[in-house]
């Protein structure tokens, strides 16, 4: 499958890239590892006029400690994450999650920025031009309807990234650079939850780095998929728990991927967990609550009810894991 034709830019600075992007934002795309973008381009769901390669900008692929904070450049690859000493020592969970994305080569190519900014997915959208040709284009492909839900105006495409849930659980922030300078926002706010335009980046903005506060508590990531490689999650879960000094739970974060138009935090379940002790009854209630709170759509070959069910099961497993004194 050939790529569509495009103009190709190799900016040497972020500013240059921002300017190029802002000049024709609707018809430009940023290229990082390309593992998400180029597939979509081959499928002709993205047909940009210009492709702006971020990899020609030096010094965007770093992993470093700045004071207590960990900073990861947007162009750091997932493989950089899993093999970085610093990350292995301070945030082993991040190294672990990076090895769960796709397979080895995809990790060597794919960047953290690209992973966080990857397109939402839908069984009617991530298909070839031939495949989609039988039906009129849907909202996300520039058309006037949705094949998943008939409700007007909305796209329910699903965010399936692996890195975002854990990073949100770790309260990461992102620094973005745009025509009006830089701003920092919480990673959670990067996601608009609008399937058609899933990122809240403004015109011309580029994600520059991810900032992670010092670690506290314990974090787990469980990814559910049919095979142990290549696949995106059917559903996945990041669970972060901090004890309050007693046996009770102080702070809890429960974030799912692949069940909504962005990473989905189940606040109700989190509240239920906070200041409770991790007994079996709580685990049961909390996982049921989380499964209730999410509303997956039929955007993949898996049914919403199955996703919901697995979400509950994953959370139960994760919580049980915390019951054990020294979880993995």
């Amino acid at each position: 499958m050939r790529l569509p034709k495009f103009e190709y830019l190799e900016p040497k600075t972020l500013q240059e890239a921002v300017r190029a992007l802002a000049s024709d934002a609707k018809r430009s795309v940023l290229l990082a590892g390309g593992t998400d973008l180029l597939v979509n381009m081959k499928h002709r769901v993205i047909e940009p006029k210009q492709v702006i390669n971020l990899k020609t900008i030096p010094k965007l692929a770093y992993v470093k400690n700045v004071k207590d904070e960990l900073r990861i450049g947007a162009l750091a690859t997932l493989h950089d994450l899993s093999s970085s000493r610093v990350i292995q020592e301070r945030f082993p969970i991040l190294s672990h999650v990076a090895t769960k994305v796709g397979a080895y080569a995809l990790q060597a190519m794919g960047t953290l920025g690209g992973n966080l900014c990857q397109g939402n997915r839908c069984r009617f959208y991530n298909q070839s031009a031939f495949w989609r040709g039988a039906k009129p284009p849907c909202y996300k492909a520039g058309g006037k309807l949705c094949h998943v839900v008939r409700k007007p105006g909305e796209c329910h495409s699903t965010y399936c990234g692996d890195m975002a849930p854990v990073l949100i659980a770790l309260e990461a922030q992102v620094r973005v650079v745009g025509p009006n300078g830089e701003r920092v926002l919480s990673l959670s706010k990067l996601y608009s939850r609008d399937g058609k335009r899933p990122l809240s980046l403004r015109k011309g903005e580029i994600l520059k780095e991810v900032l992670i506060p010092p670690p506290s508590g314990k974090t787990l990531y469980l990814k559910w998929r049919r095979r142990e490689s290549i696949e995106f999650p059917i559903v996945s879960l990041a669970l972060h728990i901090e004890k309050d000094g007693t046996e009770k739970i102080g702070k809890a974060r429960i974030i799912f991927s692949a069940v909504g138009s962005g990473p989905v935090e189940t606040i109700g379940a989190e509240e239920m967990l906070e200041s409770s002790s991790l007994d079996n009854r709580t685990i049961e209630r909390v996982s049921n609550q989380a499964a209730k709170e999410i509303s997956p759509m039929r955007t993949s070959i898996y049914s919403p009810s199955y996703k919901r069910r697995m979400a509950g099961i994953l959370l139960r497993q994760a919580l049980e894991n915390f019951q054990i004194p020294n979880p993995k």
Partner: peptide, 11 residues
């Protein structure tokens, strides 16, 4: 390891 089908030659 790179997947050459998802790599631009120019890149």
């Amino acid at each position: 390891p790179y997947l050459s089908c998802l790599t631009l030659a120019a890149d």
